[in-house]
Design a protein around this nucleic acid. Structure first.
Lengths: 150, 150
DNA sequence: AATTAAATAGTAATTATTCTTGTTGACTTT
DNA sequence: AAAGTCAACAAGAATAATTACTATTTAATT
């Protein structure tokens, strides 16, 4: 399932992306990209920084954050839970999910009972025992849609 | 869908919960609870603090955080995204979802194509236009399951 | 090789959240 | 009702993740 391209191909791909985006492929970016490609454990910026300590002792943590943000914008990585914002609290006790507007960050409750009732894939048993599921739908809310069409 | 109990009943419910948990129902806790009950916009601790500024000018932001954490443990509210932990990055380009262990916080990829193909409920048209979906399954991973059974 | 603009390192700043400490105030016991 | 007790609080300090600032370096271009 997880496509594992040969290393050189991945790097060519990165070069392509950087060229198209008009940004430079620096040592630091390449090193962070390589580290991401061999890491299968969803590392944090700090962990990536630590892992590159030996090969790039002068690498600044700031650069790791900036590069990961750049990669995020280029679609190379995804931030797992978007923590730029404050923790939000939800007092709705009913089973529900969330729509999050990528533009204005508004959060709206939504209900999807068919999904709540659906059975999980068999492969779950290889991973663990589920206590609850939380779905986030990301997109543009109707208000922001209108505004962007003006 | 969203059950809206009459106010007095909700407060009785809170009293019950506090009694059972052996904690006091203080002015501050009651005020924060009331604010949560009339807020339908997933407020942050800071916003709740601001909204209570007039009625409780001496309320400390720290108390809001502490109370919300207490409420979280009591199941009265849920934290939406936890600012506390580090942002994690995912370089797997394939459509996938995540299992998150509630105990060791490990994150594992999982694939669920049936869900990816399923059509969203009609009601999302009232909310906005979806760009992507992200599912989080929370539970105990097999390793933590074993350890807790020792 | 020189130029130029983007990217980096190092350090400082910012910001959400939590901790520390002394105080308050709601119960309990007398 | 007065004194005692302990959870909960306010205030300000501390922490930790992330971002901003600035002088320097580096990659791409001429």
């Amino acid at each position: 399932m997880k496509t594992k391209l040969p290393n050189q191909k991945q790097i060519e791909h990165l070069k392509d992306i950087c060229n198209k985006a008009g940004i430079k492929l620096t040592h630091q970016r390449l090193a962070i990209f390589r580290e991401l490609m061999i890491s299968h454990d969803h590392p944090s910026a700090e962990i990536i920084h630590k892992r590159l300590e030996k090969s790039l002792p002068t690498l600044a943590i700031d650069t790791v954050y900036r590069t990961l943000s750049t990669f995020n914008e280029l679609g190379i990585v995804k931030k797992l839970h978007l923590k730029n914002e404050r923790t939000l609290f939800d007092a709705n006790p009913d089973q529900h999910h969330h729509f999050i507007c990528t533009r204005c960050k508004a959060v709206k409750d939504l209900y999807w009972e068919d999904f709540d009732k659906s059975t999980l894939p068999e492969s779950i048993h290889n991973i663990g025992h589920i206590q609850f599921r939380h779905l986030e739908l990301h997109g543009l809310c109707n208000r922001c849609l209108k505004e962007s069409n003006l």
